[in-house]
């Protein structure tokens, strides 16, 4: 006589422990989740100035000097600009826009756009000026937004070392 093993058609896995762990994981990831705003960079290449090099005067790239003056409580008071040919001072609320316009005028005067890239901006910043104003000035010389497109202006930026002022 043939004995047939009876198969139980309702074999079910016990899912409880897996669901427990899955929920634990889910809670962990939800708790540690944080929306991070994107961050970007302004690149500044600043080698230490070579001391007393006897290099014969080379043709130096055009230099725009931007001086950021501090007022009360670290707030910006004004901007002086000088590109070697002419200079200006800006004090009003739209000083950053005027700074951008000045830089753009200087670059346009170069004629050749490839040379414009070579134009350099040196920032001379008062020690106590809050960093956010400095960044705004760097932004103003780096480019501007035209019709939701970024127009690049200056790529070479350096700082005059004023770190001794606070001592």
């Amino acid at each position: 006589m043939k004995i047939r093993a009876k198969e139980d058609p309702n074999v079910k896995l016990n899912m409880t422990s897996m669901i427990d762990i899955v929920f634990q994981l889910l809670v962990f990831f939800i708790m540690t989740f944080k929306i991070v705003e994107m961050e970007g960079d302004f690149n500044v290449r600043m080698p230490l100035a070579a001391e007393e090099t006897n290099v014969i005067e080379e043709v130096l790239p055009d230099l725009i000097t931007v001086r950021l003056k501090v007022g009360a409580e670290g707030v910006i008071a004004g901007i002086d600009v000088d590109n070697g040919v002419d200079g200006d001072s800006f004090f009003e609320n739209d000083m950053y826009t005027k700074l951008t316009d000045f830089v753009e005028r200087t670059i346009d005067a170069e004629g050749d756009p490839s040379e414009a890239i070579e134009t350099e901006v040196e920032f001379d910043i008062d020690y106590d000026l809050k960093y956010s104003y400095t960044v705004k000035a760097i932004e103003s010389v780096s480019g501007k937004v035209v019709d939701k497109q970024i127009k690049k202006l200056i790529e070479k930026i350096k700082f005059k070392d004023n770190s001794q002022q606070g001592e």
Binding site: E37, M38, E39, G40, D41, F42, N43, V44, R45, M46, P47, L48, L68, G74, I125, D126, Y127, D128, L129, K130, Y131, Y133, T134, V135, I138, F159, D161, N162, S163, Q165, G166
Partner: peptide
């Protein structure tokens, strides 16, 4: 104060570092 940022940059320069990125929020 921006002077402190400059101080940090010059400290790095003294040690031969010259490639800086000023990080800001987009």
């Amino acid at each position: 104060p921006t002077g402190l940022v400059q101080k940090l940059i010059s400290k790095c320069q003294q040690l031969g570092l010259e490639n800086f990125s000023l990080r800001v929020k987009e």
